[in-house]
């Protein structure tokens, strides 16, 4: 009975309202932080330095921010996207985390269930990251020698290979046909132009475009069902 009474569009509207108000306040707080730092440190912003730096940063990062926004919102849904775009670490944490929760909950992309699971997942992940960093900051002095111990260093240098190895197993086996081309493309192009190995944020767009393009062709030809 309760299920029938619940108006999901009202929930969606309230998510947008909370997201917009929350992100507006959050963005203002973030933008004011450098000025507050300058005020409390009795310093001044170096506007010449700022202007000469910001152009080169904007040229590179504004297009990638726009592309990320266009790609990630359909995958995550609005609630999770609002939080992802204020808490960051989307590619290396929020997106895989939400995908993992979605797999476990067996929710379908674009469904109400997926929207709710993704929001729960990204919000929890953001909180856990904040708590871990907070505890780490509190324990920074005793923890630093442990975390920077040369014996343990390879463990933390290889968090992303560990993450994408486990996640890769989950997704590659869903369709080996979809995997072969983007994986071979990335491997070969990085062997030919080794500097691209460090440009994963840009290469994600290329590999994502290849695999989505292929999936669309396969879908149209009824190879994927």
């Amino acid at each position: 009975m309760e299920k029938e009474v619940f108006d999901y569009s009202k929930y969606t509207d309230s998510v947008h309202r909370m997201g917009r108000i929350g992100l507006s306040i959050g963005a203002l707080m973030l933008l004011s932080a450098p000025f507050l730092f300058a005020y409390f440190l009795d310093a001044e912003i170096d506007w010449n330095g700022f202007l000469s730096a910001i152009w080169s940063v904007l040229i590179v990062y504004v297009p990638s921010c726009i592309v990320e926004y266009l790609i990630y919102v359909p995958l995550l849904g609005p609630g999770a996207s609002y939080l992802s775009f204020i808490t960051g670490n989307i590619t290396n944490l929020k997106l895989p985390c939400a995908a993992n929760a979605r797999e476990i909950a067996e929710a379908e992309v674009g469904s109400k269930e997926n929207e709710i699971i993704s929001t729960l997942s990204v919000a929890t992940s953001s909180l856990v990251t904040m708590v871990v960093i907070f505890i780490g900051v509190l324990l920074l002095i005793p923890l630093t020698p442990v975390l920077e111990n040369p014996v343990l260093r390879p463990a933390f240098d290889n968090v992303l290979p560990a993450l994408f190895g486990a996640l890769g197993y989950q997704y590659f086996r869903k369709s080996l046909r979809l995997t072969v081309l983007p994986l071979s493309f990335m491997t070969l192009i990085c062997i030919i132009v080794p500097s691209l190995m460090g440009q994963t944020s840009i290469m994600i767009i290329a590999c994502g475009a290849i695999s989505i393009g292929l999936s669309w062709i396969f879908w149209k030809k009824h190879i994927l069902k």
Binding site: Y171, L183, M186, C190, I204, C207, F218
Partner: peptide, 26 residues
């Protein structure tokens, strides 16, 4: 799920391929 589910899978395959491909190249 329709095509949307496959688009999500394809995006995740693209994401994993980017990182795994860079490690193979390395």
């Amino acid at each position: 799920g329709g095509y949307a589910s496959w688009a999500m899978v394809a995006m995740m395959i693209g994401l994993c391929s980017t990182f795994v491909g860079s490690y193979i190249a390395e």
